[in-house]
Design a protein around this nucleic acid. Sequence first.
DNA 1: TATCAGTTATCTTATAGAGGACTTACGAAC
DNA 2: GTTCGTAAGTCCTCTATAAGATAACTGATA
Lengths: 251, 251
Amino acid sequence: MDADRPHAAAPATPRYAPLYQQVREMLVARLAAGEWKPGEALPSELDLAARFNVAPGTLRKAIDALAAQNLVVRRQGKGTYVATHTEEHASSFRFLRIRSDTGATEYPGSRLVDVRRGRASADAARLLALKPGEAVLQLRRVLEFDGAPVVCDDITLPAALFKGLTRTRYEAYDGSMYGFFETEFGVRMLKAHERIKAVAADATAARLLRVAPGAPLLAVERVTTTFGDRPVELRRGLYATAHHHYSNDLG
Amino acid sequence: MDADRPHAAAPATPRYAPLYQQVREMLVARLAAGEWKPGEALPSELDLAARFNVAPGTLRKAIDALAAQNLVVRRQGKGTYVATHTEEHASSFRFLRIRSDTGATEYPGSRLVDVRRGRASADAARLLALKPGEAVLQLRRVLEFDGAPVVCDDITLPAALFKGLTRTRYEAYDGSMYGFFETEFGVRMLKAHERIKAVAADATAARLLRVAPGAPLLAVERVTTTFGDRPVELRRGLYATAHHHYSNDLG
DNA sequence: TATCAGTTATCTTATAGAGGACTTACGAAC
DNA sequence: GTTCGTAAGTCCTCTATAAGATAACTGATA
């Protein structure tokens, strides 16, 4: 009816969806498309508000939602930045839940044991939304706290997304694995779901983690997703919890 | 200087703290004091804004923070309600992370094995901020999925907060254990921190969970806190993960 | 009595604008 | 050359107002 109402950008939505959520989705789409790269600053809030033809408060609320999701980081007086795995050495604990029992916050060392090309098992294909037998990369790495091996991860990646990933290329990179994926392949790990069980160490795990065969280990299966909840990593980890634990906050 | 500026309620804060956070803290204090009981409705936003002498938008932002913390629940057109453990049978999964591997969302049955009075061990006293030897209650309960025991919990509570807790009284209550604590003793479980390890089943656990002695189990140590991060529950659980898993979301 | 429409109360979203706080850069003063 | 203050840009907070959405209540009507 009143098509030229002054300040309503898109009031003609048939089903009700708040304007700030529409703006949020437009921003997510641009982030996913790479319009602003990780670490870069977004345009100012006033600029974006003008661009989307909404009030500054509305745009601000949309960015609030993105910041709550850790998609962007606000810095007062400077600007709003695309979140990245490369800086935030502290915030990197977002995806690393293993801690020393003593409370020491040392950052573990990562040692790549093996990189192989292979085909997705039925299991892996289901969890990664691939066709069975599709090409994947298999990494095995060990995390060491203070020189002692604590975590052994088996990582499965869709080969199509990580063309050119080699052992030497990873070892040339200085930083976390998700930082490596982000800067070298443009794959952004955003969320993850983990399923945890207790298992007995088999011979291989016992050797890599230096525990007795049959010793109880934490088995962590992680499916990591990127924009649109698309799964892009399957990670099966075995954690030796003699002097470390998996830390989790509820509520 | 300009003391009679028109629209600034309390701009005279010496060190800078946003007004909406001050309002939030006042609201938390009233919630902690029990001015509004769990399940009850808060006064309307306009009422509260007038009471605290702030603009509706500011009060709204304070309540937004409370809702994000799960302290209150908003219901459009009805009002804002104090969160409770007694309803939300679905949201009760907030503190229950064990799931069936098949994805069935059945709610487990709880069987109280034992209730004892005792004295806090050095360990328990430290985690619960009690003096060693202070009076505590020790509960042991088993969670059963579909009739099969899966979780065995040893729960330590400060006796001072749970006067009159007996086995029969718990069994007379219909609902979750945290709902029981809330309605019968006024103790609200708000947050929890968990430390997870893998251990081998001892004789007692093996019997209760019907697994072989030495079988790997998840050992979950939970410290639950109420207002002001005061610890009020210590819970050591053993989870049999043959057909179940601990589910966790990151990011 | 039962049902339906209107009213009211409430949360929810959106707009506009003013001023505060933080960071950075630039230029003047020493 | 160093230091300091100012200015600009940006995010941050708060206020004020209005209208849409949802649910409960009220009262008239069949």
